[in-house]
Amino acid sequence: MDCGVFTTNYREDMAILHHPGAKLKVLVVVAFFLALPFMVNAYYVSVVNLIGIAIIGAIGLNILVGFTGQISIGHGAFMGVGAYAAGIMTATLGWSFWIALPAGGLAAALIGGLFGIPSLRLKGLYLAIATLAAQVIIEFGIIHWPALTRGPAGMVLPAPTIGGLVLNNDTTFYYLILAITIGAVVFALNLFRTRTGRAFMAVRDRDLAASVMGINLFKYKVTAFAVSSFYAGIAGALWGHYLGVISPEYFTIKVSILYLAMIIIGGLGSVMGAIYGACFMTLLPILLRETADFFGGGFAGLTHIMLAMQEAVFGLLIILFLIFEPEGLAKMWHKVKEYFKLWPFSY
């Protein structure tokens, strides 16, 4: 498929898509997603929307965990910061969504960067506990500051408008999410072939060596927390405005762990891995529910048990992936591609 590619200058060698076929493939994929809402019903569009939002959040978390080697159990809360900051701007202050969305991301980046400061001194488990504190503190803050966040009752958020068009249904929101997701993917891919992204990976692989190569560890660790939280904030703000309502229970530690599961199953330190993981973890509960419904017709109790099994299946999958394919779905897909590269003459 893509063997026999020779580059003759550095620009070609640095390209993300080496092969003309790869460019065509990307075009086909983008065209498919542009046409998707016309081919399937609104329910499936809403599923794809949720996947898109999950992709943005998972790439963000992977930038921090997979690429920079830090850890965060507070990403659910950082999504909450983005959602609430943007929500307060649109619902309470009446600002435009187009200002509130990036501002929500920036608010999350600020808070995330702040909670990233301990990462200079803390590593591994200790850092995990410090970010767990971030999760708890932010959740507490959202619940106990009703003047700003309306407390446990939650907020109703207005639908964004563009020109005269109100983005209040799955299909219109679909294109917004698609555009932002593509932007998030491209930005991350570029980031990791340039100076800042390389510095992140250097910090992950050998932080002492990174410091003697002139990399300011503190600056890059905090930057990684901020970029990662920016992605989370954008995902949170999009999610909130898509659902039209937010409340503290949307941004609990369960969300943080769900996103960690996405990047572990998808593949740590891989942008494509974050995408695969996000698809997998969003589709899995839907698949389990459909299966339960299918078999549950005859046995009323079975639906209940199958739904309760969801969490167990999640946990089991994470364990199995850690044992059998620690590099996740991205690696599995890579192996399949490698196998078929020279197929059927792969000896």
């Binding site: 100076r195 510095a199 990174a210």
Partner: peptide, 28 residues
């Protein structure tokens, strides 16, 4: 103490870190 998950090229490009200027935004 190399960055062992990165390629030879990326390791050497990291050596150029202090001579380069590209920041987060322009890099992305």
């Amino acid at each position: 103490e190399l960055f062992k998950h990165l390629t030879v090229l990326e390791n050497l490009m990291l050596g150029r870190h202090i001579h380069m200027k590209t920041g987060l935004l322009s890099g992305g």
